[in-house]
């Protein structure tokens, strides 16, 4: 194998995006996120105790039931620790229930949530399971080809604060993906498809 000069852009891109990425494994489809991380060459960590947050470089909050995840997370002291790690610059991505978990404003939510990202998220906004749907999205950050998104009893981002960028909308303008610095929220499930672009994009947020 030929050696690449350390300064070449190719060598820089070949570096792992993030060494160890965690997925909150309290409830939901954390296994699908862990498998996706492994496929793209990142060490996946199933995070079930707050102290594990110190051992990872980025955290994904998976899909699942936001009431269940919120309840277990607050009971075991995750929320304060997560706020500390986020303040230190750790990237956090919430998919579906995870987006609810990281939103600052969730009208009517019965349990405490992390409240990290400046947006309002409405739960079950598209209706019940029979209204769940699949849709192709244009996401400029991911390149020209559309991202096929799976929406399951999905929440809706109804308002974003200043400093939050909208990354994707449905045809009617409904916001379904947004980013604030190193915080990412999607109301759909990239982990249920074989398209890994959103995972790679998220891991790139941790780069200095």
């Amino acid at each position: 194998m030929s050696k690449l000069p350390a300064s070449s852009s190719l060598a820089r891109d070949a570096r792992p995006l993030t060494a160890r990425a965690g997925v909150l494994g309290l409830q939901g489809d954390f296994a699908e996120h862990l498998a996706t991380l492994e496929r793209i060459g990142v060490e996946p960590v199933d995070v079930r105790r707050p102290e594990q947050l110190d051992t990872i470089d980025a955290l994904i909050i998976p899909g699942g039931e936001s009431t269940t995840i919120g309840k277990l997370a607050s009971q075991y002291g995750f929320i304060e620790k997560l706020r500390d790690r986020t303040a230190e610059g750790m990237p956090v991505w919430g998919t579906c229930a995870g987006a609810i978990f990281i939103a600052k404003d969730v009208p009517g939510h019965p349990h405490p949530l992390a409240g990290l990202m400046d947006m309002t998220v409405e739960r079950n906004a598209f209706g019940r399971q029979v209204d769940s749907f699949e849709a192709d999205l244009d996401v400029a950050e991911l390149g020209p080809s559309p991202f096929h998104a799976v929406f399951i009893r999905a929440p809706l981002i109804t308002h974003v604060g200043r400093g939050v960028d909208v990354l994707a909308t449905l045809h009617d303008g409904t916001v379904v993906a947004a980013r604030q610095g190193r915080l990412l929220a999607t109301s759909f499930h990239p982990e249920l498809t074989r398209d890994e672009r959103f995972h790679r994009y998220f891991l790139s947020l941790g780069k200095p």
Partner: peptide, 18 residues
């Protein structure tokens, strides 16, 4: 589309660990 196999099996994925 609605009611696809991905959406049907996907909801069960969200229930896992619960």
């Amino acid at each position: 589309s609605t009611g696809t196999w991905t959406l049907k099996t996907g909801l069960a994925q969200m229930l896992k660990g619960g």
